[in-house]
């Protein structure tokens, strides 16, 4: 398969970047999107050019490192899929593919498609934890958890923190990420002790990082590779109201 890539190239944060065209020819339809970039990079290296910098790690859809904006969609157009799990057969032969970094003030660009998502770490550090004695593994059913609660907590916990929600949000808001990280704990008995302070502190950290304000467009849920529901955003709002009244 042959493609024309238009890739955001920017050597350093201070530089003014631009979209640069590359030809990606002779690509197997079975290649993943990142493998396609690897091939293009090898050819760039052979020509003595700087390869395209992009983030990746597991390449099996679980680590949350990959994820650029491809043709206007974070992680590309296939729903519920990370960029590393998207295959080139999903793009028609001869098409042009525009690849841009996740864009948000809170995600400063490092190089090309690589952005700094440590703002997410700050949100987690502010309240995305529980204080328990981490001894040996507890008994399975020592603390009863309603099935519905356990399942909803697991749904929230599916978040891999890739940042696609922020990238797709017209407001560059981090509400889906923050709410998932808050709800995965707040829905369970073990997460009740810090429930109020968690809502206050995580929201505070989110604001301090410079994210935008949620206006319920729902684009985050639609691009999320784990299809996390915006129901968790309402959950966060509820916890935030309760914590503010105390």
């Amino acid at each position: 398969m042959n493609y024309t890539l238009k890739v955001w190239r920017q050597a350093r944060p201070s530089e003014k970047g631009k979209l640069v065209s590359y030809s990606a020819h002779g690509i197997s339809s079975e290649a993943s999107f990142l493998e396609m970039l690897d091939i293009v990079n090898e050819r760039l290296l052979e020509k003595g050019e700087e390869p395209i910098a992009f983030d990746h790690d597991c390449r099996e859809g679980i680590c949350g490192m990959c994820g650029s904006v491809v043709n206007g969609y974070a992680h590309g157009h296939q729903r519920g899929t990370t960029l590393c799990q998207l295959h080139m057969r999903e793009f028609s032969d001869g098409s042009t593919i525009i690849i841009e970094p996740l864009r948000a003030k809170a995600f400063p660009l490092i190089k090309d498609l690589v952005v700094d998502r440590s703002a997410f770490d700050k949100i987690i550090a502010a309240g995305g934890f529980i204080s328990i004695r981490a001894g040996s593994a507890p008994d399975g059913n020592a603390i009863p958890v309603a099935k519905e609660m356990a399942e909803r907590a697991m749904d929230a916990a599916a978040c891999i923190g890739c940042g696609a929600c922020v990238a797709a949000c017209p407001n560059a808001s981090a509400m889906l990420f923050t709410s998932a990280k808050l709800a995965q704990l707040g829905l369970l008995p073990q997460g009740q002790v810090e429930r109020d302070s968690r809502a206050r502190e995580m929201v505070r950290a989110m604001e301090d990082a410079g994210f935008g304000a949620c206006s319920n467009h729902g684009e985050c849920e639609a691009v999320c590779p784990k299809e996390i529901s915006t129901n968790f955003i309402a959950f966060l709002n509820r916890d935030f109201i309760v914590s503010s009244m105390k």
Partner: peptide, 23 residues
């Protein structure tokens, strides 16, 4: 706040679910 949160926009933006009303 939201306008400041994305100083540099995308070359291509595609929406999936947001409505005309929301925008």
């Amino acid at each position: 706040q939201s306008w400041q949160a994305r100083p540099k926009g995308y070359a291509v933006t595609r929406y999936r679910t947001t409505s005309y009303a929301a925008r």
